Amino acid sequence: MATTLEKLRGLVESLCTRTQTGTLTWIEAEGGGIYVQIGSALIILNDEPGSNFENDIRVSIYSDGNKIDSFTDTIFSGHSPTLTSASSYYQLLSDTLSMGRRQASGAEMVLDQLLKDLEASPAKDFF
């Protein structure tokens, strides 16, 4: 049977993978965080001041409106992600937060459309 730490590592790696593939729909939350609804659970990611001059990434899990778990990337100290190329869980969660924010704000959709529009219109010779 998997330990709680192993389950949390699997959750974090799955969130990153599914964010990269676009199969999660992140929504902007107050304070710069993002959240996603998965079944009856709500997962919130945000960054907060850490003790080593860089932010920690906090993951909070809610079920039926109650916070059932909350942790930061620091609980994975000494462990490396197995399913991704990230070198640390901080990097993994930071990348997930960044990708999720871009998705939630619509930045990725606008960028995709700009690239599509540029490909569809012929380049003009300016010289």
Score class of each variant (00 low, 15 high):
Ala104Asp: 05
Leu42Val: 14
Tyr90Phe: 05
Thr23Asn: 13
Gly10His: 12
Thr23Pro: 06
Gln20Leu: 09
Ala86Met: 14
Ala29Gly: 04
Phe76Asn: 03
Arg58Phe: 01
Asp112His: 12
Arg101Val: 10
Pro122His: 09
Leu15Pro: 15
Thr3Asp: 01
Ile43Gly: 02
Tyr89Met: 06
Ser60Met: 02
Ala29Asp: 10
Ile57Gly: 11
Ala41Cys: 01
Ile38Arg: 14
Leu97Ser: 04
Asn52Thr: 06
Gln113Val: 11
Asp47Glu: 15
Gly10Ser: 03
Ser80Lys: 15
Leu118Met: 12
Ala107Pro: 12
Asn55Ser: 15
Thr25Gly: 11
Thr21Trp: 02
Asp117Thr: 10
Gln113Tyr: 14
Lys7Tyr: 06
Arg102Gly: 09
His79Met: 11
Pro49Trp: 04
Gln113Ile: 09
Gly78Lys: 10
Phe127Ser: 12
Ile34Thr: 03
Pro49Arg: 00
Glu119Phe: 06
Tyr89Asp: 03
Thr4Asn: 06
Gln20Val: 14
Gly106Gln: 02
Asn66Ser: 13
Ser98Asn: 06
Tyr90Glu: 00
Asn46His: 08
Ser85Gln: 07
Asp56Arg: 06
Phe76Val: 01
Asp69Thr: 03
Thr21Gln: 15
Ser88Arg: 02
Glu30Phe: 08
Gln20Pro: 05
Ser121Met: 08
Gly31Gln: 05
Thr17Asp: 10
Trp26Ala: 02
Met109Pro: 08
Met109Cys: 07
Ala29Phe: 00
Ser40Glu: 15
Glu30Ala: 15
Asn66Thr: 11
Ala123Met: 10
Val36Ser: 02
Ile57Trp: 09
Trp26Arg: 10
Pro49Ser: 07
Thr74Ser: 14
Ile57Gln: 03
Leu11Gln: 07
Ile44Gly: 01
